[in-house]
Write a protein that binds this DNA or RNA. Structure first.
Lengths: 166, 166
DNA sequence: GCAAAGTTTCAATAAATACTGAACCGACAA
DNA sequence: TTGTCGGTTCAGTATTTATTGAAACTTTGC
Protein backbone atom coordinates (compact mmCIF):
# COMPACT_ATOMS: atom_id res chain seq x y z
CA UNK A 1 0.00 0.00 0.00
CA UNK A 2 1.32 3.43 -0.86
CA UNK A 3 1.55 6.26 1.63
CA UNK A 4 -1.08 8.20 -0.27
CA UNK A 5 -3.53 5.28 -0.20
CA UNK A 6 -2.84 4.68 3.46
CA UNK A 7 -3.51 8.28 4.37
CA UNK A 8 -6.70 8.37 2.36
CA UNK A 9 -7.91 5.17 3.92
CA UNK A 10 -7.21 6.47 7.39
CA UNK A 11 -8.95 9.80 6.81
CA UNK A 12 -11.95 8.09 5.30
CA UNK A 13 -12.26 5.53 8.11
CA UNK A 14 -11.78 8.04 10.87
CA UNK A 15 -14.50 10.13 9.25
CA UNK A 16 -16.87 7.17 9.15
CA UNK A 17 -16.11 6.32 12.77
CA UNK A 18 -16.86 9.88 13.79
CA UNK A 19 -20.13 9.99 11.98
CA UNK A 20 -21.44 6.91 13.72
CA UNK A 21 -20.65 8.64 17.02
CA UNK A 22 -22.52 11.82 16.27
CA UNK A 23 -19.47 13.78 15.13
CA UNK A 24 -19.73 15.17 11.68
CA UNK A 25 -17.71 13.47 9.02
CA UNK A 26 -15.73 16.53 8.01
CA UNK A 27 -14.74 17.36 11.56
CA UNK A 28 -13.46 13.83 12.04
CA UNK A 29 -11.65 13.93 8.71
CA UNK A 30 -9.87 17.15 9.56
CA UNK A 31 -8.87 15.57 12.83
CA UNK A 32 -7.53 12.52 11.01
CA UNK A 33 -5.65 14.67 8.53
CA UNK A 34 -3.97 16.63 11.30
CA UNK A 35 -3.16 13.49 13.27
CA UNK A 36 -1.08 12.14 10.42
CA UNK A 37 0.26 15.44 9.13
CA UNK A 38 4.02 15.65 9.65
CA UNK A 39 3.75 19.45 10.04
CA UNK A 40 1.07 21.84 11.18
CA UNK A 41 -1.32 22.77 8.39
CA UNK A 42 -3.02 26.00 7.39
CA UNK A 43 -6.72 26.30 6.67
CA UNK A 44 -5.86 26.52 2.96
CA UNK A 45 -4.00 23.24 3.04
CA UNK A 46 -6.84 21.50 4.85
CA UNK A 47 -9.40 22.84 2.37
CA UNK A 48 -7.23 21.70 -0.50
CA UNK A 49 -6.57 18.24 0.91
CA UNK A 50 -10.16 17.44 1.81
CA UNK A 51 -11.79 19.42 -0.99
CA UNK A 52 -14.00 21.46 1.30
CA UNK A 53 -14.99 25.10 1.41
CA UNK A 54 -13.41 27.76 3.52
CA UNK A 55 -16.47 28.15 5.72
CA UNK A 56 -16.71 24.46 6.37
CA UNK A 57 -13.03 24.19 7.20
CA UNK A 58 -13.18 27.16 9.51
CA UNK A 59 -16.19 25.98 11.47
CA UNK A 60 -14.92 22.47 11.96
CA UNK A 61 -11.43 23.56 12.90
CA UNK A 62 -12.98 25.84 15.56
CA UNK A 63 -15.02 22.93 16.82
CA UNK A 64 -11.93 20.74 17.08
CA UNK A 65 -10.15 23.47 19.04
CA UNK A 66 -13.21 23.71 21.32
CA UNK A 67 -12.98 20.02 21.99
CA UNK A 68 -9.29 20.38 22.82
CA UNK A 69 -8.25 18.03 20.05
CA UNK A 70 -6.45 20.58 17.91
CA UNK A 71 -4.23 23.52 18.74
CA UNK A 72 -3.67 26.74 16.89
CA UNK A 73 -0.07 27.43 16.09
CA UNK A 74 1.16 30.88 15.17
CA UNK A 75 4.34 30.76 13.20
CA UNK A 76 6.57 33.81 13.67
CA UNK A 77 6.55 35.98 10.61
CA UNK A 78 3.50 34.18 9.15
CA UNK A 79 0.24 35.96 9.23
CA UNK A 80 -2.01 32.97 8.84
CA UNK A 81 -2.84 30.36 11.44
CA UNK A 82 -1.58 26.80 11.43
CA UNK A 83 -3.13 23.84 13.19
CA UNK A 84 -1.72 20.78 14.92
CA UNK A 85 -3.55 17.83 16.45
CA UNK A 86 -2.99 16.51 19.91
CA UNK A 87 -1.18 13.27 19.18
CA UNK A 88 -1.42 11.59 22.57
CA UNK A 89 -4.45 9.30 22.27
CA UNK A 90 -5.04 9.27 26.00
CA UNK A 91 -5.31 13.07 25.94
CA UNK A 92 -7.64 12.84 22.97
CA UNK A 93 -9.94 10.40 24.71
CA UNK A 94 -9.82 12.35 27.95
CA UNK A 95 -10.87 15.54 26.21
CA UNK A 96 -13.68 13.78 24.43
CA UNK A 97 -14.89 12.34 27.72
CA UNK A 98 -14.74 15.75 29.39
CA UNK A 99 -16.70 17.41 26.61
CA UNK A 100 -19.35 14.77 26.18
CA UNK A 101 -19.82 14.52 29.91
CA UNK A 102 -20.42 18.24 30.07
CA UNK A 103 -22.60 18.40 26.98
CA UNK A 104 -24.65 15.25 27.39
CA UNK A 105 -24.33 13.40 30.65
CA UNK A 106 -24.65 16.43 32.90
CA UNK A 107 -27.74 17.88 31.20
CA UNK A 108 -29.27 14.41 31.41
CA UNK A 109 -28.60 14.27 35.14
CA UNK A 110 -30.38 17.58 35.55
CA UNK A 111 -33.39 16.30 33.62
CA UNK A 112 -33.48 13.18 35.77
CA UNK A 113 -33.48 15.35 38.88
CA UNK A 114 -36.29 17.48 37.57
CA UNK A 115 -38.52 14.60 36.65
CA UNK A 116 -37.94 12.93 40.00
CA UNK A 117 -40.36 15.51 41.31
CA UNK A 118 -43.53 14.04 39.78
CA UNK A 119 -46.30 13.63 42.37
CA UNK A 120 -46.21 10.08 43.67
CA UNK A 121 -49.99 10.06 43.74
CA UNK A 122 -50.62 6.89 41.77
CA UNK A 123 -48.97 3.51 41.83
CA UNK A 124 -47.85 4.14 38.28
CA UNK A 125 -46.23 7.41 39.30
CA UNK A 126 -44.38 5.68 42.10
CA UNK A 127 -43.08 3.06 39.70
CA UNK A 128 -41.98 5.79 37.31
CA UNK A 129 -40.08 7.56 40.06
CA UNK A 130 -38.38 4.33 40.97
CA UNK A 131 -37.21 3.62 37.43
CA UNK A 132 -35.88 7.16 37.15
CA UNK A 133 -34.16 6.82 40.51
CA UNK A 134 -32.28 3.78 39.29
CA UNK A 135 -31.23 5.43 36.08
CA UNK A 136 -30.07 8.43 38.10
CA UNK A 137 -28.10 6.25 40.47
CA UNK A 138 -26.38 4.57 37.60
CA UNK A 139 -25.69 7.82 35.79
CA UNK A 140 -24.20 9.42 38.87
CA UNK A 141 -21.93 6.48 39.29
CA UNK A 142 -20.88 6.73 35.67
CA UNK A 143 -20.34 10.44 36.09
CA UNK A 144 -17.99 10.07 39.03
CA UNK A 145 -16.20 7.11 37.46
CA UNK A 146 -15.49 9.23 34.42
CA UNK A 147 -14.22 12.03 36.65
CA UNK A 148 -11.77 9.67 38.25
CA UNK A 149 -10.77 8.27 34.90
CA UNK A 150 -10.06 11.72 33.54
CA UNK A 151 -7.97 12.63 36.55
CA UNK A 152 -5.83 9.52 36.29
CA UNK A 153 -2.92 9.45 33.90
CA UNK A 154 -2.22 7.63 30.70
CA UNK A 155 0.07 5.14 32.42
CA UNK A 156 -2.70 4.04 34.64
CA UNK A 157 -4.84 3.21 31.68
CA UNK A 158 -2.18 1.61 29.57
CA UNK A 159 -0.48 -0.29 32.33
CA UNK A 160 -2.23 -0.83 35.58
CA UNK A 161 -5.88 -1.14 34.81
CA UNK A 162 -5.75 -4.52 33.18
CA UNK A 163 -3.84 -6.12 36.01
CA UNK A 164 -6.00 -4.56 38.66
CA UNK A 165 -9.26 -5.92 37.47
CA UNK A 166 -8.07 -9.36 36.49
CA UNK B 1 -44.74 17.94 37.79
CA UNK B 2 -47.39 15.52 36.62
CA UNK B 3 -46.66 11.95 35.63
CA UNK B 4 -47.58 12.72 32.05
CA UNK B 5 -45.21 15.67 31.88
CA UNK B 6 -42.45 13.66 33.51
CA UNK B 7 -42.80 10.83 31.04
CA UNK B 8 -42.82 13.19 28.10
CA UNK B 9 -39.78 15.00 29.38
CA UNK B 10 -37.93 11.72 29.85
CA UNK B 11 -38.80 10.40 26.41
CA UNK B 12 -37.83 13.65 24.77
CA UNK B 13 -34.50 13.91 26.61
CA UNK B 14 -33.55 10.30 26.05
CA UNK B 15 -34.29 10.82 22.37
CA UNK B 16 -32.04 13.87 22.25
CA UNK B 17 -29.27 12.04 24.08
CA UNK B 18 -29.51 9.19 21.60
CA UNK B 19 -29.32 11.45 18.62
CA UNK B 20 -26.13 13.08 19.80
CA UNK B 21 -24.64 9.59 20.02
CA UNK B 22 -25.52 8.54 16.53
CA UNK B 23 -28.67 6.64 17.52
CA UNK B 24 -31.75 7.80 15.79
CA UNK B 25 -34.17 9.83 17.83
CA UNK B 26 -37.12 7.51 17.37
CA UNK B 27 -35.18 4.44 18.37
CA UNK B 28 -34.06 6.14 21.55
CA UNK B 29 -37.59 7.35 22.24
CA UNK B 30 -39.05 3.89 21.89
CA UNK B 31 -36.39 2.69 24.27
CA UNK B 32 -37.29 5.42 26.75
CA UNK B 33 -40.98 4.65 26.44
CA UNK B 34 -40.39 0.97 27.15
CA UNK B 35 -38.05 1.72 30.04
CA UNK B 36 -40.77 3.57 31.89
CA UNK B 37 -43.72 1.48 30.74
CA UNK B 38 -45.27 -0.42 33.65
CA UNK B 39 -46.29 -3.24 31.28
CA UNK B 40 -44.99 -4.57 27.99
CA UNK B 41 -46.35 -2.66 25.01
CA UNK B 42 -47.54 -3.71 21.58
CA UNK B 43 -46.35 -2.08 18.36
CA UNK B 44 -49.74 -0.37 18.16
CA UNK B 45 -49.37 1.21 21.56
CA UNK B 46 -45.89 2.45 20.74
CA UNK B 47 -47.09 3.97 17.47
CA UNK B 48 -49.93 5.65 19.25
CA UNK B 49 -47.85 7.00 22.09
CA UNK B 50 -45.05 8.42 19.94
CA UNK B 51 -47.20 9.30 16.94
CA UNK B 52 -45.13 7.34 14.48
CA UNK B 53 -45.94 5.07 11.57
CA UNK B 54 -46.11 1.31 11.66
CA UNK B 55 -43.05 0.94 9.45
CA UNK B 56 -40.99 3.25 11.59
CA UNK B 57 -42.05 1.53 14.78
CA UNK B 58 -41.32 -1.89 13.35
CA UNK B 59 -37.86 -1.05 12.11
CA UNK B 60 -36.75 0.64 15.28
CA UNK B 61 -38.15 -2.06 17.54
CA UNK B 62 -36.18 -4.64 15.52
CA UNK B 63 -33.06 -2.54 15.90
CA UNK B 64 -33.55 -2.33 19.66
CA UNK B 65 -33.94 -6.11 19.83
CA UNK B 66 -30.74 -6.46 17.76
CA UNK B 67 -28.92 -4.32 20.26
CA UNK B 68 -30.24 -6.48 23.10
CA UNK B 69 -32.01 -3.57 24.74
CA UNK B 70 -35.56 -4.79 24.21
CA UNK B 71 -37.14 -8.23 24.37
CA UNK B 72 -40.09 -9.62 22.51
CA UNK B 73 -42.78 -11.02 24.75
CA UNK B 74 -45.44 -13.38 23.45
CA UNK B 75 -48.50 -13.37 25.63
CA UNK B 76 -50.40 -16.65 25.60
CA UNK B 77 -53.65 -16.34 23.71
CA UNK B 78 -52.56 -13.04 22.17
CA UNK B 79 -51.62 -13.03 18.55
CA UNK B 80 -49.64 -9.85 18.55
CA UNK B 81 -46.18 -9.26 19.95
CA UNK B 82 -45.40 -7.22 23.03
CA UNK B 83 -42.13 -5.58 23.91
CA UNK B 84 -40.29 -4.99 27.18
CA UNK B 85 -37.07 -3.09 27.81
CA UNK B 86 -34.12 -4.43 29.72
CA UNK B 87 -34.32 -2.39 32.90
CA UNK B 88 -30.93 -3.13 34.40
CA UNK B 89 -28.79 -0.18 33.34
CA UNK B 90 -25.59 -2.14 33.66
CA UNK B 91 -26.94 -4.68 31.16
CA UNK B 92 -28.02 -1.87 28.89
CA UNK B 93 -24.59 -0.29 28.89
CA UNK B 94 -22.88 -3.65 28.49
CA UNK B 95 -24.93 -4.47 25.43
CA UNK B 96 -24.26 -1.09 23.91
CA UNK B 97 -20.53 -1.57 24.50
CA UNK B 98 -20.61 -5.03 22.93
CA UNK B 99 -22.45 -3.80 19.86
CA UNK B 100 -20.45 -0.66 19.28
CA UNK B 101 -17.21 -2.51 19.83
CA UNK B 102 -18.23 -5.00 17.18
CA UNK B 103 -19.61 -2.46 14.76
CA UNK B 104 -17.07 0.33 15.11
CA UNK B 105 -13.98 -0.42 17.14
CA UNK B 106 -13.20 -3.76 15.55
CA UNK B 107 -13.55 -2.58 11.94
CA UNK B 108 -11.31 0.33 12.84
CA UNK B 109 -8.68 -2.04 14.21
CA UNK B 110 -8.75 -3.93 10.94
CA UNK B 111 -8.25 -0.73 8.97
CA UNK B 112 -5.33 0.23 11.20
CA UNK B 113 -3.74 -3.14 10.55
CA UNK B 114 -4.15 -2.80 6.82
CA UNK B 115 -2.68 0.65 6.61
CA UNK B 116 0.28 -0.39 8.73
CA UNK B 117 1.51 -2.05 5.58
CA UNK B 118 2.44 1.11 3.67
CA UNK B 119 5.98 0.94 2.30
CA UNK B 120 8.34 2.67 4.72
CA UNK B 121 10.24 4.10 1.80
CA UNK B 122 10.25 7.76 2.76
CA UNK B 123 10.77 9.47 6.09
CA UNK B 124 7.19 10.70 5.87
CA UNK B 125 5.94 7.15 5.41
CA UNK B 126 7.88 5.99 8.45
CA UNK B 127 6.35 8.79 10.51
CA UNK B 128 2.92 7.83 9.28
CA UNK B 129 3.44 4.21 10.27
CA UNK B 130 4.56 5.31 13.70
CA UNK B 131 1.46 7.46 14.30
CA UNK B 132 -0.76 4.60 13.18
CA UNK B 133 1.14 2.19 15.40
CA UNK B 134 0.42 4.35 18.43
CA UNK B 135 -3.24 4.65 17.61
CA UNK B 136 -3.39 0.89 17.14
CA UNK B 137 -1.68 0.26 20.44
CA UNK B 138 -4.13 2.48 22.22
CA UNK B 139 -7.13 0.99 20.45
CA UNK B 140 -6.09 -2.54 21.26
CA UNK B 141 -5.75 -1.59 24.89
CA UNK B 142 -9.19 -0.01 24.80
CA UNK B 143 -10.57 -3.09 23.11
CA UNK B 144 -9.31 -5.48 25.75
CA UNK B 145 -10.28 -3.15 28.58
CA UNK B 146 -13.82 -3.10 27.24
CA UNK B 147 -13.79 -6.89 27.02
CA UNK B 148 -12.86 -7.12 30.66
CA UNK B 149 -15.42 -4.52 31.58
CA UNK B 150 -18.14 -6.43 29.82
CA UNK B 151 -17.20 -9.65 31.54
CA UNK B 152 -17.27 -8.12 34.99
CA UNK B 153 -20.55 -7.78 36.82
CA UNK B 154 -22.68 -4.86 37.79
CA UNK B 155 -21.53 -5.01 41.38
CA UNK B 156 -18.02 -4.47 40.35
CA UNK B 157 -18.94 -1.31 38.59
CA UNK B 158 -21.28 0.02 41.18
CA UNK B 159 -19.23 -0.96 44.17
CA UNK B 160 -15.61 -1.82 43.81
CA UNK B 161 -14.28 0.25 40.97
CA UNK B 162 -14.32 3.55 42.74
CA UNK B 163 -12.42 2.30 45.75
CA UNK B 164 -9.87 0.46 43.64
CA UNK B 165 -8.71 3.37 41.63
CA UNK B 166 -8.72 5.95 44.42
C1' DG C 1 -7.07 56.06 6.03
C1' DC C 2 -6.74 52.44 2.88
C1' DA C 3 -5.53 48.10 0.84
C1' DA C 4 -4.19 43.35 1.50
C1' DA C 5 -4.41 38.99 3.78
C1' DG C 6 -6.73 36.35 6.46
C1' DT C 7 -10.90 34.84 9.40
C1' DT C 8 -15.75 34.50 10.64
C1' DT C 9 -20.61 34.34 9.85
C1' DC C 10 -24.78 32.88 7.91
C1' DA C 11 -28.62 32.52 4.46
C1' DA C 12 -29.31 29.58 0.74
C1' DT C 13 -28.70 25.02 -0.83
C1' DA C 14 -27.13 20.33 -1.07
C1' DA C 15 -26.68 15.93 0.98
C1' DA C 16 -27.70 12.56 4.28
C1' DT C 17 -30.92 10.45 7.17
C1' DA C 18 -35.28 9.15 8.90
C1' DC C 19 -40.24 8.38 8.18
C1' DT C 20 -44.49 7.23 5.89
C1' DG C 21 -47.81 4.44 3.97
C1' DA C 22 -49.17 1.16 0.97
C1' DA C 23 -48.20 -3.32 -0.87
C1' DC C 24 -46.90 -7.73 0.43
C1' DC C 25 -46.26 -11.92 3.36
C1' DG C 26 -47.50 -15.53 6.57
C1' DA C 27 -50.34 -17.70 10.10
C1' DC C 28 -54.53 -18.80 11.49
C1' DA C 29 -59.65 -19.67 11.65
C1' DA C 30 -64.02 -20.02 9.53
C1' DT D 1 -60.34 -21.09 -0.03
C1' DT D 2 -60.93 -16.81 1.79
C1' DG D 3 -60.68 -13.12 5.17
C1' DT D 4 -58.45 -11.10 9.04
C1' DC D 5 -54.75 -9.75 11.89
C1' DG D 6 -50.50 -8.64 12.49
C1' DG D 7 -45.55 -8.11 10.79
C1' DT D 8 -42.21 -6.68 7.20
C1' DT D 9 -40.34 -4.16 3.39
C1' DC D 10 -39.13 -0.34 0.70
C1' DA D 11 -39.78 3.47 -2.84
C1' DG D 12 -40.99 8.02 -2.35
C1' DT D 13 -40.98 11.95 0.56
C1' DA D 14 -40.06 14.80 4.50
C1' DT D 15 -36.90 16.33 7.87
C1' DT D 16 -32.58 17.18 9.61
C1' DT D 17 -27.94 18.18 9.19
C1' DA D 18 -23.90 19.74 6.80
C1' DT D 19 -21.80 22.61 3.24
C1' DT D 20 -21.07 26.37 0.26
C1' DG D 21 -19.81 30.86 -1.01
C1' DA D 22 -20.19 35.52 -0.64
C1' DA D 23 -20.31 39.41 2.43
C1' DA D 24 -18.70 41.32 6.66
C1' DC D 25 -15.25 41.72 9.78
C1' DT D 26 -10.28 41.99 11.80
C1' DT D 27 -5.60 42.74 11.79
C1' DT D 28 -1.59 44.54 9.93
C1' DG D 29 1.46 47.33 7.09
C1' DC D 30 2.08 51.31 4.39
Amino acid sequence: MTLKEGKERFIQSWGALGSSWGINRTMAQIHALLLIAPESLSAEEIMEELQISRGNANMNIRALIDWGLVYKELKPGERKEFFVAEKDMWEVVKNIIIQRKKRELEPMLRVLDEISSVDPESEEAREFIEVIREIKLFSNKADSTLDTLVKSDSNWFVGTFMKMIK
